[in-house]
Amino acid sequence: MHSQDENPSPPVRTSKSLVVADRPASRRPAWCGLRARPGEVARARSFASSEVFGLPFDAYEIGLITSELVTNAVNAARALGAWPDRMSPISIRMIATDRYVHLAVTDPDHRPLAGADRGGRLAEYGRGLSIVDQLAAARWVTYDERSKTVHVLIAATGVILSPAELEKVGMPT
C-alpha cells in the first residue's frame, strides 16, 4: 500500500468550470524508426496518437495525418526496392506542445513529392495529402541528396501561431 505522498497526483489548477492538470508547455522531441512495410502504418499511428495524450489535440486526427504521411513514405521506400527487416529507412520525428504539433516523416526517396488529389474523390490513390492539408495548419517538404521529409504543423484549436513559432519549427516563409 502506498501512501499519498509516495504517488502524488499532478497539481491541478481550476479556472471557473475548467480543470487543467499542470503539464510542461512542451515535451521532448520524440522519434520512431519504421521499416518499409505496410504494417508499420498502424505502429506509427499509435506512436503519434500516444504522444499527444493529455494535450489539446484530437488523437484520432493526429493518427490520421500520421497514417497518410507514413503510407506515402512506405510506398516511396518500397518503390526504391526491397529493404531488409533489420533496416528502418523511414523515421518520424514529433514535437508536441500545448499550442502545436510538428510532425516530420522522412523517407529515402529524394525525388519530389507527387501532387495531391489526382483523380478526384473516387480515385484509389492520391487523396491522402488533401486530407492532411484539410486538418493541418501547414505542410511543407524538405529535400537532401538521399531523402525527403514531409513536415506538418497542426495548431491546437483556437491557436494562431506566431511568426516566431513558425520560424522555430523551420517552416519556410
Results as ranks from 00 to 15, higher is better:
Met1Asn: 10
Met1Thr: 13
His2Pro: 00
Ser3Thr: 15
Gln4Gly: 00
Asp5Phe: 14
Asp5Met: 13
Glu6Asn: 06
Glu6His: 08
Pro8Trp: 06
Ser9Leu: 15
Val12Asn: 00
Ser15Asn: 08
Ser15Trp: 15
Lys16Pro: 00
Ser17Leu: 12
Ser17Arg: 11
Val19Gly: 03
Val20Asp: 09
Val20Leu: 14
Asp22Arg: 11
Pro24Tyr: 06
Ser26Ile: 01
Arg27Asn: 02
Arg27Tyr: 07
Pro29Leu: 09
Gly33Phe: 11
Leu34Phe: 05
Arg35Lys: 13
Arg37Leu: 10
Glu40Ile: 01
Glu40Tyr: 03
Val41Thr: 12
Val41Gln: 04
Ala42Asp: 14
Ala42Val: 14
Arg43Ile: 09
Arg43Gln: 12
Ala44Leu: 11
Ala44His: 03
Phe47Gln: 07
Ala48Pro: 12
Ser49Leu: 07
Ser50Lys: 11
Ser50Asp: 14
Val52His: 01
Val52Tyr: 06
Phe53Met: 04
Phe57Met: 07
Phe57Asn: 02
Ala59Thr: 09
Ile62Asn: 02
Gly63Ile: 06
Gly63Asp: 04
Leu64Asn: 07
Glu68Ser: 10
Leu69Phe: 09
Val70Gln: 04
Asn75Thr: 12
Ala77Gln: 03
Ala77Asn: 05
Ala79His: 15
Ala79Cys: 02
Leu80Phe: 05
Gly81Tyr: 02
Gly81His: 03
Ala82Pro: 06
Ala82Glu: 15
Pro84Leu: 09
Pro84Arg: 07
Asp85Val: 11
Arg86His: 13
Pro89Phe: 03
Arg93Cys: 07
Met94Arg: 06
Arg99Asn: 10
Val101Cys: 15
Val101Ser: 06
Val101Ala: 15
His102Asn: 08
His102Val: 03
Leu103His: 04
Ala104Trp: 01
Ala104Gly: 02
Ala104Ser: 14
Ala104Phe: 01
Val105Ser: 03
Val105Leu: 07
Val105Gly: 01
Pro108Ala: 05
Asp109Met: 06
Arg111Gly: 07
Pro112Ile: 03
Leu113Cys: 04
Ala114Ile: 11
Ala114Ser: 08
Gly115Asp: 15
Ala116Ile: 00
Arg118Gln: 14
Arg118Phe: 08
Gly120Val: 12
Gly120Tyr: 08
Leu122Thr: 12
Leu122Trp: 05
Tyr125Pro: 00
Arg127Gly: 14
Ser130Lys: 10
Ser130Asn: 10
Asp133Asn: 15
Gln134Ser: 15
Leu135Lys: 12
Leu135Pro: 00
Leu135Ile: 13
Ala137Phe: 03
Trp140Tyr: 03
Trp140Ala: 01
Tyr143Asn: 09
Glu145Cys: 07
Lys148Phe: 06
Val150Gln: 07
Leu153Asp: 08
Leu153Tyr: 05
Thr157Trp: 00
Gly158Thr: 09
Ile160Tyr: 00
Leu161Gly: 04
Ala164Cys: 01
Glu167Val: 05
Val169Trp: 06
Val169Thr: 05
Val169Tyr: 06
Gly170Thr: 08
Met171Ile: 00
Thr173Leu: 05
